[in-house]
Design a protein around this nucleic acid. Structure first.
Length: 265
DNA sequence: GACATTTGACCAAT
DNA sequence: ATTGGTCAAATGTC
């Protein structure tokens, strides 16, 4: 019985940009293509499967290194996992939770880079969010090379919308149609933070705090009233955890040198 | 019961 | 031919 595989012909066509950007360029919020936006991309030009469009390498993508790959301000749905040949850790595939709803093509791929206590992940984003991007508040920790060339990494907490990020204010529909539950809000720290599939609301402050205009898609109100407190305490232990293992620097962010240095576009 | 995640298989790209 | 990316049935959790 071969299962009928109703294959969807996805054909996205972008004439170019095959590149990965340097990482730590977390200067612009946490996710979002370095240098601005990749808008103007027109998805689904529907190219019949014969065309050589939609080559994976042609898709716009950018890379980022982080210790908190799950917190990038967006809701993702995992759709696959794969052992990659030359990688010791499997690669995880995510796509925007609003993919069907909003035809959002955004997707990302997680690749764990090492087995350190807080493991470092390389996240490759593909396509910008066209769903109206709903950045969820989170502490983004970005790995950066220490200024001075010593060994080790410098982490920085970055918050989306923190600095001149417009997206922040017009978002909100956490999940409605597709994901009434909180998606992967787990961290992978070995030490104090427990990580059963229990880590629920963790970060989700600004909802009540001040998000004026949600698309009104019915926020399920994940956290009861004191979501804020909850979040901060979580955040705190979270930060402490890190403090135990590494140091936060002041970080003048440098681009993560080589090995990710193809450029973006 | 509804939805997300897991996992193996399929398929396209290289 | 190999490898990576995606699909979808099965399973698990809420």
């Amino acid at each position: 019985m071969a299962s009928p595989r109703m294959k969807m012909e996805q054909s996205y066509d972008f004439g170019d940009s095959s590149a990965q950007d340097a990482v730590g360029s977390a200067s612009q919020s946490s996710y979002s293509p370095p240098g601005g936006a990749l808008f103007g991309i027109s998805p689904l030009e529907s190219s019949p499967r014969g065309g050589r469009n939609n080559r994976r390498t042609d898709r716009p993508s950018w890379v980022k290194l982080t210790y908190t790959p799950y917190f990038d301000g967006h809701l993702w749905r995992k759709y696959g996992q794969k052992k990659i040949k030359d990688a010791e850790y499997p690669r995880l595939y995510f796509r925007c939770s609003y993919r069907e709803d909003r035809q959002c093509l955004a997707s990302k791929l997680l690749q764990q880079k090492n087995g350190e206590d807080p493991p470092l992940y390389e996240v490759t984003y593909t396509y910008e969010h066209t769903c109206g991007a709903a950045p969820v508040p989170f502490p983004d920790i970005v790995a950066e090379p220490p200024a001075g060339g010593r060994e080790g990494l410098v982490l920085r907490f970055d918050s989306p919308g923190g600095h001149g990020d417009a997206q922040m204010q017009q978002q909100g529909h956490f999940q409605s149609t597709t994901a009434p539950r909180s998606p992967f809000m787990m961290l992978s720290f070995g030490s104090s933070s427990r990580q059963t599939h229990d880590q629920q609301p963790a970060f989700r402050s600004d909802l009540e705090a001040g998000s004026p205009s949600f698309p009104t898609e019915g926020l399920p109100a994940l956290a009861p009233a004191n979501g804020d407190a909850d979040m901060f305490s979580t955040l705190e232990s979270f930060a402490q955890d890190f403090d135990n293992h590494m140091h936060f620097g002041d970080h003048t962010h440098l681009p993560y040198s080589s090995s990710y240095d193809d450029d973006y576009y």
